[in-house]
Nucleic acid binder design. Structure first.
Lengths: 257, 257
DNA sequence: CCTTGCCTCCTCATTTTGGAGGATGTGCAG
DNA sequence: CTGCACATCCTCCAAAATGAGGAGGCAAGG
C-alpha cells in the first residue's frame, strides 16, 4: 500500500520515532507529535485527547485551534458531535468520508456552527486502544481549499498512531507502577479498603511514619487515649493486632488488589 | 542527506517504530530490531551488546553469528579487538572505514583469524550512550562479495540507533524504579547500610513482615531472648527505637540513598 | 425527635517491646 | 594462641502497645 517517502517525510518519520521513545510525558509527546504530523501530512489543525486513568476525564492538547471554539465544544457541541463517536469505533486511522457522506456532513449543525467556524474541512482520526479500553486519539484536519486526505496519508497516520498508542500505554503502565509504589497512595487505598474514618486515617498515617502514640497525640492535638481509641478501631476493622502487622499489610505487594 | 525511502524500507521503518514502543524487553527488542535491520540494510550479521547496570557485565544478542566463533571472542579476541574500542568512542553510527583503513584492517589478526572466519567483511556500529555511561550497541555486518555500506545506510542506522538508545535508557530507568520499589531489595540495602549481620537481617526481615518476637523465634528456631538480642543490636546500629520506626525507615523514599 | 456515626476521653488488665546488664560457645584471622 | 565477631541464651525492669469495657458531645439524616 504505502509506497515511498520523500526526503522531507523520511526526516520527519525518524524525528517522530525519536520523539516517541524520548518523550515520557503524554502532553509533551502529543504536542510534539502534533507539530510533526501537521508538517508530515500537510494539515492545518491538530487535536489530541487522552482519557485519564479511572474516571472518564479527558486531557486535550491542540494546535491552531481557536480557544473560544474549543470552549464551545466543551460546553455544547461535544453533546451533539455526530462524528467523533463513529471515529472512536474505528480501530485504525479513519477518514471523515469513511464514516459519513460528504453531503450529510455538510448539512450537520456540527459542521456549520462549529468545525467550519474554525476552518476544519477535511479530517482524519486515529483512536488508540489498549486491552482495558480507550487510551487517546490523534485528530488531524485540513482547512478549506486543500484537497482531501489520501490513502497514503491514512497509512502514515495509522502507523504512527499505532506506535503512539503503544507509547501511551507504556506511560500509563509506568504511572500505574509509580502510583503503586507511592506510600501515601498505598495508605489511602488500604484505608479505603478497610473503611477507615478520617481520623483513623490520620492516626494510621502517623503510625506508618513510625511515630509512637504520644507523638501522634501531640501531632494531632488530641489525647493519647483518643489515639488509642482510633487505633483500636483500625485493628478491629482490619483484623490485625500490631502496628508492625499494619505497616507490613499496607506495604505488601498487591496491596492495591 | 537522507533522501527517499522505498516502499519496502518505509514498511520496515514503521515496523521498527512500533517495535521500539511495543517491546519492553531489551533482549527481545534487539532480536527483533536485528532482524529488521538486516532486512532494511541488506546486511547479513547482527550483534548487539548491552551493558548491564552497575557491574560491567554484557548481555549479547546475535543473528547469523557462529556459536563457536562467539565463544572464541569471549575467550580471546575481545582482548585484542582493535576496532570495537574505536567504534565505541563514536557517538553516532560509524562505518568501519571511518576508524581504520581498509589496508590496515585486512592485515589485523582480528580480521583474519576471527571476523573473516565468520564471513564478516563490511561493518557499521552504533553505540548508544546515556548521561551515566554506555548503554549498548548495534553492530551490522555484510558478508564477502557485497558492496560497502553507504552514507545512506549510516544515516538510517544512526536514526534508528538514537531511538534505540532512548528505548534502552527507558527500560533501564524503569528497571531501576522497579528495583527501588522491591521490598526485599530495600531491606537488603538498608541492612547493608547499617552493617547488619546475617542473623540480624533474618530477624529484621521477619519483623518487616509484621511478626512478633515469639513468632520470629519459632520461625528461626531460636529463643525469644535471642531474637531480642539481635533486635537490640539492630536498634543500636540504626539509632532507632521502635519496630514501627524501623519499618518506616526501610520503606522511606530515597532509602537507596 | 431520635438514631447513627464519628470524635473525643476515660479506666483497668494484659501482652509486647525496648534497654541494661550479662554469659557461653564457635569459628576465623592474625 | 589470642583476640574478635557472631550467634545463642539469660535476668530484671520500665515503657509502650493492645484489648475490653465504658461515656459524653455533636452533626447529619430519616
Amino acid at each position: 500500500m504505502l509506497t515511498t517517502l520523500s526526503g522531507r517525510e523520511t526526516k520527519l518519520i525518524f524525528a517522530i520515532m525519536q520523539d516517541m521513545t524520548a518523550i515520557q510525558d503524554a502532553r509533551q509527546l502529543r504536542l510534539q507529535l502534533g507539530a510533526r504530523l501537521l508538517d508530515l501530512l500537510e494539515a492545518d489543525y491538530f487535536a489530541s485527547y487522552v482519557w485519564t486513568r479511572t474516571d472518564g476525564d479527558t486531557d486535550g492538547v491542540f494546535l491552531n485551534m481557536d480557544e473560544s471554539n474549543l470552549a464551545a465544544y466543551q460546553h455544547h457541541f461535544q453533546h451533539c458531535d455526530p462524528i467523533t463517536p463513529r471515529f472512536r469505533m474505528c480501530r485504525r486511522a479513519t477518514h471523515l468520508d469513511q464514516i459519513i457522506s460528504r453531503e450529510d456532513f455538510l448539512r450537520t449543525e456540527f459542521y456549520n456552527d462549529f468545525l467550519a467556524r474554525d476552518g476544519l474541512h477535511q479530517g482524519m482520526n486515529f483512536h488508540a486502544y489498549a486491552a482495558n479500553g480507550h487510551l487517546g486519539d490523534l485528530r488531524i484536519w485540513r482547512g478549506a481549499g486543500k484537497e482531501t486526505f489520501q490513502q497514503r496519508d491514512l497509512e502514515m497516520l495509522n502507523a504512527i498512531g499505532t506506535a503512539f498508542g503503544q507509547a501511551l500505554a507504556n506511560m500509563r503502565s509506568n504511572e500505574q507502577k509509580q502510583r503503586e509504589a507511592d506510600p501515601r497512595l498505598r495508605l489511602a487505598a488500604w484505608a479505603t479498603r478497610h473503611h477507615l474514618t478520617g481520623r483513623e486515617q490520620d492516626v494510621l498515617c502517623l503510625v506508618s511514619e513510625g511515630k509512637r502514640d504520644r507523638e501522634i497525640a501531640s501531632d494531632l492535638n488530641i489525647s493519647v487515649t483518643t489515639v488509642r481509641s482510633h487505633l483500636k478501631a483500625v485493628f478491629q476493622k482490619s483484623g490485625l493486632t500490631s502496628r508492625a502487622e499494619l505497616l507490613a499489610s499496607i506495604n505488601a505487594r498487591h496491596s492495591l488488589q
